[in-house]
Deep mutational scan, measured.
Amino acid sequence: MSGNGNAAATAEENSPKMRVIRVGTRKSQLARIQTDSVVATLKASYPGLQFEIIAMSTTGDKILDTALSKIGEKSLFTKELEHALEKNEVDLVVHSLKDLPTVLPPGFTIGAICKRENPHDAVVFHPKFVGKTLETLPEKSVVGTSSLRRAAQLQRKFPHLEFRSIRGNLNTRLRKLDEQQEFSAIILATAGLQRMGWHNRVGQILHPEECMYAVGQGALGVEVRAKDQDILDLVGVLHDPETLLRCIAERAFLRHLEGGCSVPVAVHTAMKDGQLYLTGGVWSLDGSDSIQETMQATIHVPAQHEDGPEDDPQLVGITARNIPRGPQLAAQNLGISLANLLLSKGAKNILDVARQLNDAH
């Protein structure tokens, strides 16, 4: 009898209710805020589980004197976190989706994509230029951005401005803007500013005609071990179906173009009346040469937790077992079709030249 009692006690200790789920994140304040929001949602869904947040620095956090596009290494903000995932030191990792490459290392998958916040870019102005827009900034004003995508589009749109690289986390960039006289304004992701509670610093939100956004911008991705079915089931509740389908289309477009950090590629997606609209573009580094096109596809946005595919093969690095396969494939095909259209119009040449120029500098 006593033996059975011990077995029952052991089973209770090993039951999922007692389990601590370890969540990996970057150390920056924004990353911690984003991770806290994901953990809060998981806690609400699984009140019996405990969650421990483990923060670590990544290569991208450490190399702050070089433009991201020049470092010449993929997975700048993800490699150390993936290493911890691989060694079973954490069970899942919360990322900004735009930091996750469209091809993940073997053994990993994006197990959830959370509801997207505003994906557009924002302009934050130096205190002396508050009330201005990019259009009304004085001639030769210097605007800071760490992104080739932003610089290429904005140089084309605002030729009277000069664009220079600015690195560091959000706090560091804002301090550089406010305390030094080098920059009249800087460009940042609206979602990051909003998550930090800095709505009052948003001086201008850039519309798609001015600057399309990065693939996955404004959404959070939760990376897990691809074979860890328990954790895949656990994080599945975080999937937002519309965000998922938009981001599958965007990531398929980028992957098929073979774009990345070192080339200016941008997108804009919208879901309306059962249609998914995808606009994508590529630019030369100075913005003088560009190709942009829009395509659409009829896609039914499923309700969360309709029964999805059981075999769960990944699409552009994403596993969404609780979302039907048909809409996911339709979104992926839309991204591939748009990429093929741009490639047929000469996108590869623009991107190759951009890559060579970026590598040469």
Rank of each mutant, 00 (worst) to 15 (best):
P159S: 10
R195A: 03
L188T: 11
I323Q: 15
I54Y: 11
T294E: 01
V267Y: 00
I166V: 06
P127G: 07
K157T: 07
S57I: 03
P138L: 10
P159T: 09
E52H: 04
H126P: 12
H305D: 14
Q50C: 00
I53A: 06
K62N: 15
D61N: 04
T172L: 10
L342C: 05
L85A: 07
V267E: 05
I110Y: 03
D99W: 02
R164S: 11
A330T: 15
G48M: 07
K345I: 13
T294D: 00
F51H: 09
H126M: 08
G236V: 04
L85R: 02
R156G: 07
P159N: 14
W198V: 10
N340Q: 15
S96L: 01
K43P: 03
P324I: 04
K74W: 02
V39H: 06
G131V: 12
K79G: 12
A185S: 07
Q181D: 08
A331N: 00
Q356T: 03
G197W: 05
S69E: 13
L81A: 04
G236R: 13
R173I: 01
L161N: 04
E310G: 13
V282G: 07
Q155S: 13
D230Q: 15
A219F: 00
V39P: 02
K43L: 08
L177F: 06
L245F: 06
V316N: 02
A226C: 12
L342W: 03
L351W: 05
L154W: 07
R149T: 02
A354Y: 00
F51E: 04
Q332S: 15
I205T: 11
D312K: 02
I350Q: 04
M196A: 12
L244R: 04
G280V: 06
F158R: 09
G308M: 04
R173N: 03
Q296C: 02
A55N: 07
D65C: 06
V90P: 01
Q153S: 08
A55C: 08
L85W: 02
L338D: 00
G131H: 13
N171Y: 14
A40R: 07
L278H: 03
F158G: 09
S288Q: 14
V142L: 10
I166R: 04
K115T: 12
K43Y: 08
W283S: 13
E310A: 13
P241T: 08
L174V: 10
R321I: 10
I336M: 04
D233R: 09
Q332F: 05
R325Q: 14
I248Y: 01
V237R: 10
I205A: 08
S45I: 15
P106N: 13
S37G: 08
I166C: 13
A189M: 03
D91T: 03
E82H: 03
L245R: 03
D311C: 01
H305K: 03
L170K: 03
L238E: 04
A40T: 12
L206T: 06
W198P: 06
K132N: 15
F77I: 04
K98M: 01
F183V: 12
G203E: 05
R246V: 12
K227S: 09
S45E: 10
K128S: 12
D289I: 15
A320T: 12
V237L: 13
Q180P: 08
Q304H: 08
V142G: 09
R321W: 02
R201Q: 09
S344R: 15
N340K: 12
T319P: 04
A151T: 09
N169V: 12
L351N: 01
L342Y: 13
